[in-house]
Nucleic acid binder design. Structure first.
Lengths: 163, 163
DNA sequence: ACCTGAACACCGTTCAAGT
DNA sequence: ACCTGAACACCGTTCAAGT
């Protein structure tokens, strides 16, 4: 048997979409790939590393090119993009939230730079980016109108402090 | 061996505080209580039911009496109370968030009634309560000043729509 | 009613040994 | 370098049988 690291991630995403995060075990994945469980540890130091690689793949698929626009419009767009990337996969929000607990920087970074360009101080940048990311991650189940309203609440608060 | 349902919950909270949510297994808990694993299933239908009972206990310990005050001050106080209850226990936010995924009503209800008294419509009540609860649950790690700012952002948005 | 004993069907992870 | 085989140390849950 021979396979690449990226094959493991690709197959893992298929398992995720078809059966959910609970079914995504190292043993099952190894079985699907026709390999012994221990073999996966040659490509990933542990399960968290595999989940991080999956999250990375899911998020990079949903990347959009940077455009020049107002800071609040950019934040809005970034949040919608993150939401879309999550929602393309079963348990996407659950997976991203789990990975985000040990590495919050990656997801928050684009939001931070938009807030900094808007003239936000260190605290408002930190709290604004974190609040928006967690809002997206925790509203996977909400419909689009409810999500837009929730996002609007936070953006209003930011506008009141940055206008 | 003889013990009550409440003994199981009490001991579970001790395990939680001392060793974290990962260490809180049915088997370990049974061992601590000097009982076979299967015995716990006479008091709780499954592990989720036990976790729900623990969450219930943690939240009821942090209950405060209702007072007459402005709706935004009440929302602020309810969120602080929820945050305090969570933070009294190791992995408190993680536990509550997990239980909240299958039963969101219980936590949101007090916030909903405050928003309704403020004259919010059905959508704003629903989204406002959900956003605030999830904000609290996702900011366990933030310090008090950052949390207050994050809460202020959302409350500003609500005020802009309810003033 | 409440618990034991024992099983069933799983996990993540490690590691000597093979190729 | 990459994988197998086999083990270690765990899980949640069920259920006949005992008291």
């Amino acid at each position: 048997m021979r396979y690449r690291r990226s094959d493991v991630v690709a197959r893992a995403i298929e398992v995720l979409d078809a059966h959910g995060l609970d079914a995504l075990s190292m043993r099952r994945l190894a079985g699907d790939l026709g390999v012994q469980p221990g073999a996966l540890y040659h490509h990933f130091t542990n399960k968290d590393a595999l989940l991080a690689a999956i999250a990375d793949e899911i998020l990079h698929r949903g990347r959009r090119p940077a455009e020049i626009m107002a800071w609040d419009a950019e934040l809005h767009l970034l949040c919608l993009g993150l939401r879309d990337a999550m929602r393309r996969h079963r348990d996407g929000a659950l997976l991203i939230a789990q990975v985000n607990r040990s590495d919050a920087e990656a997801l928050e970074e684009p939001l931070r730079s938009a807030l900094e360009r808007a003239g936000a101080g260190a605290q408002l940048t930190r709290v604004g980016a974190r609040t928006l990311v967690r809002l997206v991650l925790s509203h996977e189940d909400a419909d689009d109108a409810d999500f837009a309203l929730g996002l609007g609440l936070v953006l209003d608060g930011l506008r009141a402090r940055l206008a």
